[in-house]
Design a protein around this nucleic acid. Structure first.
Length: 88
DNA sequence: TCGGTGATTGTTTTT
DNA sequence: AAAAACAATCACCGA
């Protein structure tokens, strides 16, 4: 009951967007590391290798990324709150 | 009150 | 420029 890929669509006037994901923060670090350890790795492999490693970490490993994820969410809450005003 | 839906986020690489 | 694997998200709204 769920089949989507990319190219979503918008719908809000100001669209406060949402926020990032722990993966986004983690990927930010992995991108340098994974690719650094895999010089010449292809996107198809990096993406997968990245994902499996993501969880391969420990709770504490994703902690920093997770922590930023929640922090980023607050960021969105704020922009959304202001958007709710202007949109009203 | 409660659920699930959709929209979105960012990276990499490839063409 | 955009798309797809990779994962999380999670706030939003209505009935």
């Amino acid at each position: 009951m769920a089949a989507k890929k990319t190219a979503r669509k918008k719908k809000d006037p100001n669209a406060p967007k949402r926020s990032l994901s722990a993966y986004m923060f983690f990927a930010n670090e992995q991108r340098d590391i994974v690719r650094a350890e895999n010089p010449g790795i292809a996107f198809g492999q990096i993406g997968k290798l990245l994902g499996e490693k993501w969880k391969a970490l420990d709770e504490a490993g994703k902690a920093p990324y997770e922590a930023k994820a929640e922090a980023d969410k607050k960021r969105y809450e704020l922009e959304k709150s202001e958007y709710a005003k202007t949109q009203a």
